[in-house]
Design a protein around this nucleic acid. Structure first.
Lengths: 174, 174
DNA sequence: ATGGTTTTGTTATGTTATAACATCGCAAAC
DNA sequence: GTTTGCGATGTTATAACATAACAAAACCAT
């Protein structure tokens, strides 16, 4: 009821978003348990906020949300390090990705395998799809290797038009 | 004679750096003339500074250099917008690239064709190599297209170890 | 309960980037 | 040759993103 007027999407297939968040959080719980790290209340809440957003979420967006909540509970607000620490934790455990070209964060659709993400970012609606194609990863690694360069991490972000926005755009050109 | 104590490299092949800068500036002059845009003194100087650096250069690094120069000339300093505007011009004319994962800028080794760069960033020495491999570009575009996504710009940045640093690292492990 | 470790809070500050408006300088139109 | 228009630059202020450093609290292993 807060700000869902425009249903964004392009998370690959449309889905029940609430259920999707629950699944992601359950997966995160399990993964952290397995890794022996602590998905604390704060960290879990930040992860939930990131998943709950329709698009990539900036650190200060998250901060604002936390502040709102705490104010409602008559507690003191939060400060940037609180958010950045939670984000660092989630990043280093593969539960979220950082989108460099947006300075923003998205939930990782397939945690557990220690992959970097490959993102398709719609310039129109801001939604993000995750690709994670091993062919791309391999091709880049091997082309780099041919130059004597040993890749440890890849940042792959493509900007463009998502299917929905392309459709909408085409319609408006009659 | 200014600060070349450590010769960085991994710009693909080692080269006479000064001559390389001159070439880049000449190419930039020509390209701007052809495009009917103005490579003003300021813009040209910023481009020169970017090329003159051994690695990617941050906007505020450039700003500091400009300030030094102007102070030496007993003029007033410069402010951020001065640099960012020059960078915007150079970016939109394909004369430099922005490296998202570093918030920094490098000279474009092959302007004129309107490509995005593909970068190999050494985590050890900070040097950057440009790849620009059309196979990679095409593969990403086609994989995205298969999902109904129309790519307009790609950001491809790989972090790792450059040939020189790998050699040096191996040597230190005896 | 105690002591060590991890997490979170808190304050301050660093770094990167842009908005908004003023001024300058050149070149086309008169 | 002045006026006028426009692109470039100057200037001030502030927005947006991120981290350092130290204090307090929560956790949990013994």
């Amino acid at each position: 009821m807060t700000e869902d007027a425009v249903v964004s999407p392009f998370r690959p297939v449309r889905h029940e978003h609430d259920a999707c968040i629950d699944d992601a959080l359950d997966a995160a719980d399990a993964l952290c348990a397995k890794q022996g790290v602590r998905l604390t209340t704060l960290r879990r809440r930040v992860l939930e906020l990131v998943w709950g957003s329709h698009g990539p979420m900036g650190a200060y967006d998250i901060l604002d949300r936390l502040r709102e909540e705490r104010m409602r509970d008559e507690k003191k607000g939060a400060a940037p390090p609180t958010v950045y620490r939670a984000l660092d934790f989630l990043l280093s455990n593969g539960l979220i990705h950082r989108i460099e070209s947006l300075n923003a964060y998205v939930g990782c659709g397939a945690p557990s395998d220690g992959h970097a993400g490959q993102f398709l970012i719609c310039g129109d609606c801001g939604s993000v799809g995750e690709l994670d194609d091993p062919d791309i990863t391999k091709m880049i690694a091997s082309k780099a290797e041919a130059m004597g360069f040993a890749v440890t991490h890849q940042t792959i972000e493509a900007t463009g038009l998502c299917p929905e926005c392309a459709r909408r755009g085409a319609k408006n050109e009659n």
